[in-house]
Design a protein around this nucleic acid. Structure first.
Lengths: 144, 144
DNA sequence: TTCAGCAGTCTCTACTCAAGACCTATCGTC
DNA sequence: GACGATAGGTCTTGAGTAGAGACTGCTGAA
């Protein structure tokens, strides 16, 4: 990075590339994929399915405060993206099982990295929030 | 894969732990932190700041389709979480510079991992979406 | 004088999320 | 045969939130 020292060259270069391509929303993997990861429920569902395949009601019990509507919708989104597969068993009341596809399993690694970071940093983040909310904006008035 | 075999033991164990703790939203780092990462703008801003500190208008130009309102709000959130710091320079029109804090820089690694996965998987995801939208639900009707 | 740029704030609209009622089907119970 | 339970969802109805874009106060330049 010629302009200034870079904190993280690969990411910075990435950003310049995206910028050069005009941030086309359809072409930008970050916009596309992180929107799904951050979808409040989808990442939680991926983790829930990491252990084993689960049925609809089982998922509903496993993730307590999700509504059926959002569970349905999140699973459809994940299915549409090819991260989970849906298996219908023609039992008397039909039962439906959701499992991670190979693509979904390949997301577990990066996701685990992020979760690990989240757990390691959570105390610091909570402290920062408390300080901020207490009015300590920790702003620097720097010299011009 | 037998029903109870785990795809990814660490994550699965994590999930059981969260479940045991009742998914307390305040105590769950995932809910807390991933909501921010997936916030549509915040991760993009982190990447934008990875290269170098930037000023408000500079960020607004760098991320073209964010509104000032959302830019302000996203930066406040990041500042509150201690991921970015805000530096005010008392120049004639006051200029404000945002930079990644050490905590914010520590997020670049995991974030880069996720972005790398996103780029590698994007073609597959797009293909899956196209197939799904074309009506190929790729559902398995399995034997009971 | 008027304009442009900086760093935001304010308001208004439109969309989306979440809760919970409801639906279809089958089984077991009375 | 009616009654409720279970399974896997859909529909309806508020409430909250994102986004567009106008506005503010200040300065220096044309």
């Amino acid at each position: 990075m010629p302009r200034n020292a870079s904190f993280d060259a690969p990411l910075a270069t990435q950003f310049d590339e995206w910028q050069a391509r005009g941030f086309d929303a359809d072409a930008c993997p970050v916009r596309n994929v992180l929107d799904r990861i951050g979808d409040k429920w989808t990442s939680l569902l991926i983790v829930a399915l990491a252990a084993k395949p689960r049925r609809f009601s089982e998922l509903h019990r496993a993730v307590p405060d999700i509504s059926k509507r959002m569970l349905t919708q999140s699973l459809r989104d994940l299915q549409r993206d090819g991260l989970v597969t849906r298996h219908v068993f023609p039992t008397k009341p039909p039962s439906v099982e959701y499992r991670l596809s190979p693509l979904g399993q390949s997301a577990l690694g990066p996701l685990a990295g992020l979760i690990d970071w989240a757990e390691r940093s959570f105390a610091e983040i909570k402290a920062s929030r408390a300080a901020f909310d207490a009015g300590d904006t920790s702003e620097q008035i720097s010299a011009a």
